[in-house]
Design a binder for these strands. Sequence first.
DNA 1: CTAATTTCAGTGGTACTGACATAA
DNA 2: CTTATGTCAGTAACACTGAAATTA
Lengths: 149, 149
Amino acid sequence: MPENQPEAARLRTLPSRLLSMAATHADRTVGDALAARGARKWHYAVLATLAEFGPASQAELSERTHVYRSDLVAVINELTGQGLVERSADPGDRRRNVITMTDEGGRRLRELDGVLAEAEDVVLAGLSPTDREELTRLLTALVRHHRHG
Amino acid sequence: MPENQPEAARLRTLPSRLLSMAATHADRTVGDALAARGARKWHYAVLATLAEFGPASQAELSERTHVYRSDLVAVINELTGQGLVERSADPGDRRRNVITMTDEGGRRLRELDGVLAEAEDVVLAGLSPTDREELTRLLTALVRHHRHG
DNA sequence: CTAATTTCAGTGGTACTGACATAA
DNA sequence: CTTATGTCAGTAACACTGAAATTA
């Protein structure tokens, strides 16, 4: 028995659901594109963060990328295995490792920049340039608020 | 060595990343709120769909909720276990089950409506009413576009 | 025969928790 | 003693694939 009240179509406009569906599609698009080059989004996040802020400890990388400390270990292992970053002991604090991007890591990052740009374009294909900016603005406001709400 | 080029801050405005972070937070907020009542978002999706379209086969529910047919089995098992829906054989097509919402399922749905409303409000707390509508519009356009090329 | 439906078994990336040893 | 760091083990919900059995 369908109801004829306003909440009959509960699901269709539920923001959390729309967010989830859009993010799933975006993650899959980006993930597939990166996987075709043997990378994952965390790899890109770490490389991009190293390019922006320079060498850092794993704890710092975790804060900046929002990849959990515990999960970052495997990511750094994979990146070192590919020669994209180097892990060395911090002489000033022997609890820490210093992660440094190699030259090959820099080249890899610029390669992945291209992959990402294409993927983002696929993700946003349904929106005008104005709407893309508007969406970015709204999402930025959302995550900003969540981080110090 | 931080770069001073425009792509230095690659991550901060990457739409797929913003989408992912916002969706993760939203999923967690909604998921926690539902979990406090012993429910998950798929349970809500199934109940809401049954309320809107009436009794349906699992294949129909899968299409409407976008829960995979294989995953839907467990969801229906859980809902029947709680007496919220009933699973019976379709007399007209013996491959199918007919899933029907019980009266208790209807009460449960209205209970969860309240839970969802609160959770959505938390999720969108950083946005004005106008921005909330705008976000909903943009996300709707995105998922709409994804669903038909 | 092919096609649809339900079900089960399993995979993989992600988000997250807890604990431990080491060192500040 | 407390705190921070890196590491490991493990959980849970989710998205998705493949295949088997049944029936149309």
